[in-house]
Simulated assay, not measured.
Amino acid sequence: MINILLIAAIFGFVLSTTLFFKKSTNTIATRILGSFYFLLSVYALQAFIIDGGYLEHFTWFFLWPLLPYHLIFIPIYYYFKVILTDQFKWDKAELILLIPFLLGLIDVVYVYLQPVNFYNNIIFQAIASPEHRLEAEYWLLSLDQHLLMRHVWQLGVLVVLIPPIKKFIKKGNNDELKSILNKWLITFWSILTLMAVLAILYALEKMFDENLFHSLIIIGKDGGIITFFLYIALFLIGIIPIYFPSILYGYPQKIKPSSNIIKEEQPEELKFGLDEQEVISKLESLKESKSYLNQSFNLTECARELDMPSHHISYFLKSYYGLSFSSYKNDLRMGYAKRLIEDGYLQNNTIEALAGECGFASRTSFSKAFKNATEVSPSQYAIDMR
């Protein structure tokens, strides 16, 4: 069961690296999420080292992690805030989030300022009796009190987020990407809340030296049902992004449909699409590369070239241009075909050659697409251009 912590740590380190360096449609949100997964990975790794009995080989990995652990709920808060409001904004009232960190800083500095024997005694007790390591006394608070405070703050943050999350989920339920985002936020929030509750119960058990569920001991002679489910919660948080791969790219931001596109009346509420300028820039690069002229060019190939999920591309094209991917591709091909005709391509080449040049497998399919786009045949268009 201890190995669950190691697996969660490995998954977390891989995910945090991916979130930091992967190209994203919402850089701020994905990097904040990456910082959370990095802290979670350090948290799980230290728990594996201590509970697995390896602390004697990593004695340096005990006191200082208290400080980053007291920051773990801050990226949680700001990740949700950025997703829900589409912006990163700091408020003075949010200084309350730093209280656990400041108390932890005081205690960590206090311990390091003590004679070496003071710190060595804390390490010795943690190695000799890992299950009682949280009883270590610092100056302001004991280690179990620090654990309790940290997760009370985490639970408080998650409770504060309930109203804006509920309001956010009610909007745009018919939107495919919004539906995926809703599921991810609910799942992520739920597991984080479970983790906070279990960690609070775990800290209370250690503080009062009482197993709250005597008959359900699972992990060793001193383990229990709370410890078991806390490990499971950490494991789930570490691997749950596998079921929501879109978070690796970031979720889209709000945009308005282009004013140049004639569409049916749209509701005043902004729809969720991708970052307008970024995606348009990528589409311009696609035009310049002319890869859309390849007969094998499809949505999958387009996604690979733009380094975006295919459903994001389809969503953006539909929301911004009112076109399916197939229609957008044909529009690009028809634009290229018209330029070739205007430059006199058909004076020395056949329509079959023009069809192949524009990415079509046959003259028939090309002529049909061209007539749908221009209301005239390629040959007639050539005549009109003379």
Rank of each mutant, 00 (worst) to 15 (best):
Y78T: 11
N3D: 14
L143K: 00
I7G: 04
P100I: 09
L66C: 00
T364C: 06
W153E: 02
V14H: 14
L270R: 01
F58A: 02
T30E: 13
E352W: 07
W60M: 05
K178F: 02
F101K: 08
M385P: 02
V157C: 10
G156V: 11
N182S: 08
L248P: 04
I49P: 04
F316K: 00
F80T: 10
T300C: 05
L332N: 04
V14D: 14
G53V: 08
V160L: 14
E137F: 07
N174K: 14
L45R: 00
I351V: 15
D307G: 03
L332F: 07
R150M: 12
S327G: 00
S326V: 08
G104T: 15
P241Y: 03
V279C: 08
S314D: 15
L134E: 08
L340E: 13
E205C: 06
L306F: 03
T374Y: 12
K221V: 12
S41R: 04
Y37M: 13
L177D: 05
H312K: 00
R150H: 07
K371V: 13
A8E: 10
L306S: 10
Q295N: 14
Y138N: 03
G156T: 07
L134F: 11
G224T: 10
I237E: 02
F80H: 08
I341S: 06
E94K: 03
T350K: 11
N26A: 11
K183S: 09
